[in-house]
Design a protein around this nucleic acid. Sequence first.
DNA 1: CAGGCTGTTCCAAGGGACTGAACACGGATT
DNA 2: AATCCGTGTTCAGTCCCTTGGAACAGCCTG
Lengths: 269, 269
Amino acid sequence: MGQETTRRSSAIPNEGHGAVSSVEKALRLLSTFSLASPQWALSDLAREHGIPKSTAHNLLKTLQAFDLVRQDPEDRVYRLGPRALEMGFLYARSTELLGQARPHLRRLAERSRETVKLGILSDSEVLIVAAVESTHQLHTRGDIGTRWPLHSTGLGKAILSALPLAEAEALARRRGLAALTKQTATSWPKLRAELAATRERGYAMDREENEAGVRCVAAAFVDPLRGAVAAVSVSGPSVRLSDAELAILGQEAVAVARAIRPHPHWEEL
Amino acid sequence: MGQETTRRSSAIPNEGHGAVSSVEKALRLLSTFSLASPQWALSDLAREHGIPKSTAHNLLKTLQAFDLVRQDPEDRVYRLGPRALEMGFLYARSTELLGQARPHLRRLAERSRETVKLGILSDSEVLIVAAVESTHQLHTRGDIGTRWPLHSTGLGKAILSALPLAEAEALARRRGLAALTKQTATSWPKLRAELAATRERGYAMDREENEAGVRCVAAAFVDPLRGAVAAVSVSGPSVRLSDAELAILGQEAVAVARAIRPHPHWEEL
DNA sequence: CAGGCTGTTCCAAGGGACTGAACACGGATT
DNA sequence: AATCCGTGTTCAGTCCCTTGGAACAGCCTG
C-alpha cells in the first residue's frame, strides 16, 4: 500500500495553495466578527485587514446578499446575519457525532456533577461543539462555539496526544505555547512529556494550566469515518477535584470517549 | 439523472451590482448543503451549479481552509465544517433579540402548552431562530434553523403584514404562492386580503394553510434598532386549537411580541 | 463653515480567476 | 486483464473581473 503521506494532513488547513484570494478575503472579513467585537464599521474592517474601503465594501455587499452579514440601517455597522445561525444548526444536525454524543455527555455530567464538554480540533485550536454545564453554584462554563488553546487545556492535550507526534508539534507550535498560568507547559519538550504521560494514562489532565483554580480531565477519540479528532472533558474547581477524584473521572471520560466513538456504517460487514 | 440541474436554483438572493462573483459562487456552494443533502461530491456540486469542476475545486479548497467545509478523507465528499457551528453560536450570542426573547417564549409555551417559535425574515422566507417545543405527545416541531414560506405560515403572514404592502407583495411573489394545502392562499389578492385582516386583528392566523391539521397564530414586531422584522407564533394540532382558543393565544402572542421588542441601548438616557 | 470622518459609486487597468485539457486513481463492466 | 466509465486533482494560458484610487455625499465635531 502507499506508504507515503501523499494525503494532506487533514488537520491543518492549508492556507495559500490554490486559494481564491477574493473568497479568502471575504471569509477573513467574516471571521473578524467575534464575541468581543460583534459589530464592525466598514472603515475599521478595511483597516484591520489592510484592504481598501471599496474592496471591503464589495465583499461585504456580497456577504450581505446571502444574509451572512447584516448592516444596521441606522448606524451602518455590520454584524453577523441569521444565515450564520442557520448554517450552524445545519452542521449540528447533519453531524452524527453530536447526536450520538449528547446522551453520553449528559450521563457523565449527572454522575460527576461537573461541566462536561465535547471539543474537536479546528484550525489549530479546540472548538467546543457540545456541552452540559454543572449545576453547582460554582462551576466552569460550557459555552458552545468557544475556542481554547491546545497546549493548556485538557481537551487540547488529549487531542494532541491522539495525533502523530510530528503533527502534534506542528499544531501546538502554530499558536505558540503562551503561559496562561504558572503551571502552563510553555516549552515543547515539557509538553511532549505531558503528551507521553497522557498517552500512557489514557486521559489528559489539566491542573490549573489554563486557568487558576480549574482542573480538568479529558479523553480523546477519533471519528474513524470523518477523520475528525475529538475529546470529552470533565472540568471543575480544584476544591472539588482532588487527585483521587480526577483519577476516577479520567477513567469515566475514557469510557465515554470509547462509547461515543461513532460506529462506522460498515460495522455490520 | 436529474435534469433539474438546469432548473434555476433560485435559493440565491439579491444579485446586486457590487457583488463579487467568485465570492458569490463560493457562498452558493456553501448554501447547497442542506438537511436533506448534507454531503456533496465535488462533481455533483459543479454540475448543480453549472461551473467547471476545477473552479468548484478551488472554491471548496478555500472554504476548507477556513473549516467552513470539510472533506471526508475516506470517500472525499464535502460536508459543512465546524466553523459553521461557531459562527452560528456567535450570531446567537451577539444578538440581543434572542437573549431577551427566550424567557418570554418559555413563559408563553408554558401557559399555552403548545410550541412557540420566534422567526425572522431572511432571504424571502421565515427563518426560525428560537423555539420552545410543546410537551404534549402530539405537537408541532420547533427546529431552529429551519425555513418556511411567507405566504402559508402564521409567522410569514404576520411578518408580511408588518411591511409596506408593495414590499410584502415583492417578497411573497419572489418565492411564489405554492399550494401546500387546500386552504393555502395561492393568489396575491387573496393573500393581500389576509394581510389586511391580520393588520386589523393584530395577529396572523394559519388555519391549516401550511400543513393539514396544524393551526397557528403569530404576531410580528420590528426590532427598531437593527431593522429586522420578526414574529412569535404559537402552533399546534387543530384538535386542541379551537377558534376561541386561537383568539386567546393570538392576544397573548401580541402581548409577547410587544414585550420582546428590544429596548434600545439608550433607554437609560 | 471648514475639516475630518463616515459609506458609497464609478471606472480604468492590470493581475488573478476561470476553465478546458490532461493526469491519476478506483471500481465496474467487458 | 484490459477497457471503460467515474472520480478528484493539477496545470497553464487567456480574458474577464476584481481591484482600489479618486470623487461624491452625508454626518458629526471642531
